[in-house]
Amino acid sequence: MTVDRSPPPAERRRPIQKLDVGVITLVILLFAYVVYRVDYVLVYDWDWEPVLNFIVTTDPETGSWMVNLLVEGLMMTLRLAFWGTIVAAVIGLLMGLCRVSGDLFLRMMSRLYVELIRNTPPLVFIFVFYFFISSQIMPLLGVEEFAREASPTTQKVIGLFFSPIGLFGNFLAGVICLAMFEGAYITEIVRAGIQSIDKGQWEGARAIGLSRFNVMRDVILPQAIRKILPPLAGQFITLVKDSAIVALISVQELTFSGIEVAATTTRVFETWIVVGAMYFVVCYVFAVLFRRWETSMPQDRR
């Protein structure tokens, strides 16, 4: 007789129950009510045309398609988020290492940084910090001059990867502000990653005579970074959203464009729904991509 080794039948899915039907009906009713209020009571006259024109429009001279203000803003938001994440990751890595350092001064300094930023509103931080950067740091670095006097090729490269040449200084200030801000959160991610590595790894590495620096570089960080990457990807998405605050310091990203479009078209409702949808699509696509990438990553070899 052969032994039956087929798996047991799959568990049945939970069927829809009365409560589920009730909840779904309520949500639909609520949605319908909102639409009703807007349409019949508020008597809002929807007009998407002018707003959508700010996404893509036709060139009045050649008649070909071209992207408009909102898409340009979105590109700027993505560039901000990209560079911001890179700079923030560097800051976060350095500060995270300081957080677990044996040196009391370094620990206190990084702690101060993290606590200062986590316990002030981002808006306030940006105002204070931006005026410091734009009035002190930028002139010191001579960024504006550099951009103005750069060769046409350099200017083109800057325009492609960073921002239009005239706004380069402003863009850099925005990136630094965002990076300083997100860096505090990444610092904590890095710290948690390092501390999640088993104490035995330190002991095993120190027992073969590795210096503290070498233990960190060869043993702890490679393992920690593997654990840090998924939350770091999540932080990138947060940064895409948080980058909206640098609209306040006139960096012409998506929210800034949104303000302009709303003012020009006077279609406030439509503009912000479109802008919101653009943020949502971008962030959601990244979230899905990162989730896929995370599950396809080789599992911890431990």
């Binding site: 035995g200 790894q201 002991e203 095993g204 027992a207 043993v219 393992q223 911890d300 070899r301």
Partner: peptide, 11 residues
Amino acid sequence: MVFQHFNLFPH
């Protein structure tokens, strides 16, 4: 030194 839990580097 040889440890109870080996402490090899998994990566």
